[in-house]
């Protein structure tokens, strides 16, 4: 009986042993599926954090999107560079700072301003931003690689969803917070008079502030070079106002209805739209157009172009021809 039961037990265990690999395989599969499902859920949660829904995108009024619709490629490049640069520099600056604080935390208490807390919070803000920025960067890198005839639309759509997501808003908020904290840091550093036991902390804070400023500057330079200046030659020529001397050199006359009628088809100033009355001071431009002196002087300081015919009042295309003032 005993042997029988042993035999059957052995048989049973042999069967169990035979089916073990299958069991393990099954268990693994089940685990794998659970893991897979877990990753799926996490991915979806992350996706919801990083990307806004179509609805949110509709309501999204991020001013950046105007630039994106106008220059998708350039915006993509700019945001990519800023994200990567921000993540790397944030990491590179924060880690040594945290090490310093780790070793000299107690000594830092001797400063009359809480510089150690400033550095700690600043580094934390930077480090939180690192993963967010890296995800943005990798998304944009992916979109940039897609290519094809529709790639500008892909870029636009991706940035539209990205800028309406919570992560983007979060990152924006952190950046603003960081900026405020930066200003506080400047004030503290300027007012901390003695830091005898930790002279390094003062230097470190100044260093971190200097780096933040350098980063800001580099970002601005990047922005300047990312977007092509539009119609620069004409715009700058016209945008530049005339010098006071050049304006003063233009002839002025007093308006008299009877004397000027043949010359002026429409006796109104096209800047203030008011009709001229006797005694008004008129300024004559080289192109023979005239306006109230007060009205046109204000304009010429902004732009040297005649409001009516856009000819420049000074320089080569002004022809320098002036007519004698009348009256």
């Amino acid at each position: 009986m005993a042997s029988l039961s042993f035999a059957s037990g052995a048989q049973h265990s042999v069967r169990a042993l035979q089916s073990l690999p299958k069991l393990i395989n099954y268990q693994l599969q089940a685990h794998g599926q659970a893991l897979h499902r877990g990753v799926g859920v996490a991915r979806r949660a992350l996706g919801a954090f990083f990307f806004g829904t179509e609805e949110e995108a509709q309501r999204n009024r991020d001013p950046l999107m105007e630039t994106v619709t106008q220059y998708p490629d350039e915006s993509l490049w700019f945001i990519k560079v800023v994200m990567l640069f921000g993540a790397i520099s944030g990491f590179v600056i924060s880690i040594p700072c945290l090490f310093y604080l780790w070793f000299f935390w107690l000594e830092g208490a001797s400063c009359n301003r809480p510089l150690r807390y400033w550095v700690l919070f600043n580094c934390s803000l930077q480090l939180i931003q690192v993963p967010i920025r890296l995800v943005f960067f990798s998304r944009l890198l992916h979109v940039g690689r897609q290519g094809g005839p529709n790639h500008r639309n892909h870029i636009h759509q991706c940035l539209r969803l990205l800028t309406s997501g919570r992560a983007w808003k979060c990152s924006k908020f952190l950046s603003i917070l960081n900026y405020g904290w930066f200003i506080l840091g400047v004030v503290w550093v300027l007012n901390s008079s003695h830091c005898a036991e930790a002279p390094g902390l003062w230097k470190l804070t100044v260093g971190v502030i200097a780096m933040s400023m350098a980063r800001l500057l580099i970002t601005l330079v990047c922005f300047y070079y990312s977007f092509p200046p539009r119609n620069l030659p004409t715009a700058s020529r016209r945008r530049r106002g005339a010098t006071q001397a050049a304006i003063d050199a233009l002839p002025v006359s007093k308006y008299h209805a009877s004397a000027d009628v043949p010359l002026l088809r429409d006796p109104t100033c096209s800047i203030c739209l008011a009709e001229w009355v006797d005694g008004d001071e008129l300024r004559w431009l080289p192109c023979n157009h005239s306006f109230h002196k007060k009205c046109v002087d204000k304009w010429l300081k902004r732009s040297s172009a005649c409001p009516l015919c856009l000819r420049c009042v000074e320089g080569r295309d002004g022809h320098g021809q002036t007519i004698a003032p009348i009256g």
Partner: peptide
Amino acid sequence: ISSQTGAICLDILKNEWSPALT
């Protein structure tokens, strides 16, 4: 014209504006 925001790209509303326009 932006299909999203309605913003307009027209030179006279930017660089080429003149006070004689209305």
